[in-house]
Design a protein around this nucleic acid. Structure first.
Lengths: 208, 208
DNA sequence: GAGTGTGAAATTGTTCACAGCG
DNA sequence: CGCTGTGAACAATTTCACACTC
């Protein structure tokens, strides 16, 4: 295994979600089997995933829940708070703004921006929507490392370019196209049309 | 290659998005190179993906845009309209309800449901929110094959069970857990917390 | 005994390279 | 000649199996 696989990271995120639940229930340890059941992974895969970052399990027992949670936070870069800028105050932006898991993981909304003068000035979950024109100035004054792109597809690439130029290093892209960015910028894509089509494909297979 | 890979389907969905754009521009053909640039795939991969479903390209020319679009619709099961039920009238449900790509792809909202009496009766993008209690009765009268689960995590599995029992064969799950469903039911997951954590992981790598 | 950690094997997915057609 | 279609080479990822330790 050359470097850590993105599928591994995605599973780690699920393990974290589960181990936090386990902690809330007061259990002291979790086994790889338990961790895997929740995230749809085999016990062997869980152990491989975790062993990539060290060995913090106890043989015969499992993983100490508190330690595992702490290590996962650490691995996933969740120790520090992250300032997040939302571009596009449409449905997606507002869905994220009010997403409870957002604040819980230490993500702080640094600002919500929209190009539409109609939306500018309105309040969205306690944040006043600002004009996109102010993006560069605001980011220069108070940098953010993550931006969420919830604009229409036609605007997405230009917004991405501006964000990257302003120093944003990670983009969560909801527009249905692949953004072109420098190699050092991380991009995650959420494409609902695509997910629905994975489903219609499966449906058509089943029925012939 | 035993059976078609899910990554292949996801790319096909991107190719469709692009070929439709190409059609609108009036171009008659697209090459594998052009198709790949948009979706971040190599020309060879595009050809492999498509060749899995037959050979409809023209050597020396590329793929006829209209034919390719038609075949992709066909492969992805988009020829027929799909009735979609939305459970959970929160931000996610409303984001999807007003998502333009939704109707454009032949997805028809069959109903929006919520367990919260506060929300029942309100109108959401032209659809009156109904009580979750009516789910079974409504689905018996008018079946749907896809359901979107936008409920809180604690309710998601129970909602999934009820939907599956009522005949739904495909689930788009926004709750941050892996649903347990029979093998013949397709599930796609959208997990924003997870996508954000993929980004924070990448950020922490970069900075050390 | 139960459950981790990990090389080695199996599988799955991607890229290469080139024959063959329009 | 350009670009598809595809077997064969390669690379990545998952699973297996078992030594080891608590």
């Amino acid at each position: 295994m050359r470097q850590v696989a993105s599928s591994t990271i995605r599973r780690l995120s699920l393990y974290l979600q589960f181990v936090e639940e386990v902690e809330r229930e007061g259990k002291a340890t979790v086994s790889s089997r338990e961790l895997g059941e929740r995230g749809g992974a085999t016990p062997a895969q869980v152990r491989k995933d975790l062993s990539f970052f060290g060995s913090f399990g106890k043989r015969g027992i499992g993983y100490p829940a508190a330690l595992l949670a702490a290590r996962l936070h650490d691995i996933l870069g969740l120790r520090r708070r992250h300032r997040v800028v939302l571009v596009g105050a449409g449905r997606i932006g507002s869905a994220l703004a009010s997403y409870p898991g957002f604040a819980a993981r230490g993500f702080e909304i640094a600002g919500i921006y929209d190009a539409d003068p109609e939306k500018v000035g309105r309040s969205l979950d306690g944040h006043v929507v600002r004009s996109s024109d102010r993006l560069e100035a605001d980011l220069a004054a108070q940098p953010a490392d993550i931006a969420v792109i919830g604009t229409p597809a036609v605007a997405a690439q230009e917004v991405a370019d501006r964000l990257v130029r302003a120093g944003v290093r990670a983009l969560l892209n909801f527009a249905p196209l692949k953004l072109v960015v420098p190699a050092e910028v991380a991009v995650s894509n959420v494409n609902m049309a695509l997910e629905l089509e994975v489903l219609t494909f499966a449906l058509s297979r089943w029925r012939g």
